[in-house]
């Protein structure tokens, strides 16, 4: 055999999608219900008492942050479970003994997880339209941004899944780090609304750059310049790919 094992990649990709399909109802219903709840609480109850943020009605303003919040957690959960479960049940022996390269395995697992979180993002986007008019200034950029976010957070989740040695470790990063950072990263407010020194401190939160960039694709403006957001997401992709190749090269927590 030479070249790329496309059949192998597609086998893993389809296996993972089949796993998602088994939980399709909850998988898509949960984001729809969550979005609806956020709209009732933030959009109607609180939003009606709030003025516009940066010239955008508050209910529309929170849509990009809402999509990002769900996509961050979905990507990490799906990708980390995808590789953690075979490790946990022992079925990973088959992947390790198969003529599949590290890059092929990552492409298949991350590709499948990213497909799912991208669909979740699009479902939330569609649900939001039921409640509020959401203008999209740069539709192509918006989709591209979602795609890159899905891929980079799935790569991050994949790393987490290899690193984790228990279910607790698997949950702790998304719940204790990513979730608070997203809330504090301006998912539901503009960081310009914060007083100093909090505004400057917040700039050390990497999530700020991602949410701001995504919001830019909707409203044409964000908390930071779009170039910073682009640079940040590129850096995140590179770092994750670097870490994963190191993990496979050394066999870190995969091979004894």
């Amino acid at each position: 055999m030479s070249g790329v094992n496309w059949t192998g990649i597609s086998a893993i990709y389809r296996f993972e999608l089949a796993r998602f399909r088994r939980t399709l109802l909850t998988g898509l219903l949960v984001p729809v219900i969550t979005t609806t709840l956020y709209f009732i609480v933030f959009g109607s109850a609180i939003g009606s008492r709030m003025s516009e943020v940066d010239g955008t009605p508050y209910a529309a303003f929170i849509v990009p942050g809402l999509i990002m919040l769900s996509m961050f957690t979905e990507s990490i959960f799906n990708a980390s479970f995808g590789i953690y479960m075979p490790k946990f049940t022992g079925t990973i022996y088959e992947l390790q003994s198969a003529p599949v390269s590290a890059a092929e395995a990552v492409a298949a697992y991350v590709g499948a997880a990213a497909t799912k979180s991208l669909s979740v993002g699009l479902v939330i986007f569609a649900t939001a339209h039921l409640f509020v008019d959401v203008p999209v200034a740069h539709p192509l950029m918006m989709f591209g941004f979602m795609l890159l976010i899905a891929i980079s957070f799935c790569l991050f989740g994949f790393i987490l899944g290899i690193w984790a040695q228990s279910f607790e470790q698997l949950q702790i990063i998304p719940m204790l780090i990513i979730m608070p950072m997203t809330f504090l990263g301006g998912a539901f407010y503009s960081i310009h609304m914060l007083p100093e020194p909090w505004r400057s401190i917040t700039l050390f939160n990497p999530i700020v750059y991602l949410i701001s960039g995504f919001r830019w694709t909707f409203f044409g403006k964000g908390d930071v310049a779009i170039q910073f957001s682009m640079a940040f997401i590129a850096a995140m992709l590179l770092v994750c790919i670097g870490v994963i190749s190191w993990m496979f090269k050394t066999g870190y927590r995969l091979k004894k």
């Binding site: 059949t7 088994r22 049940t89």
Partner: peptide
């Protein structure tokens, strides 16, 4: 391998087809 390790929720025929695909066949 010695340890029984299977994908509990998969169908028998699907898991065998998956293995064949994984090996590039």
């Amino acid at each position: 391998p010695q340890e029984l390790a299977t994908d509990q929720f998969e169908k028998v025929i699907d898991t065998v087809r998956f293995s064949r695909g994984l090996f590039g066949k």
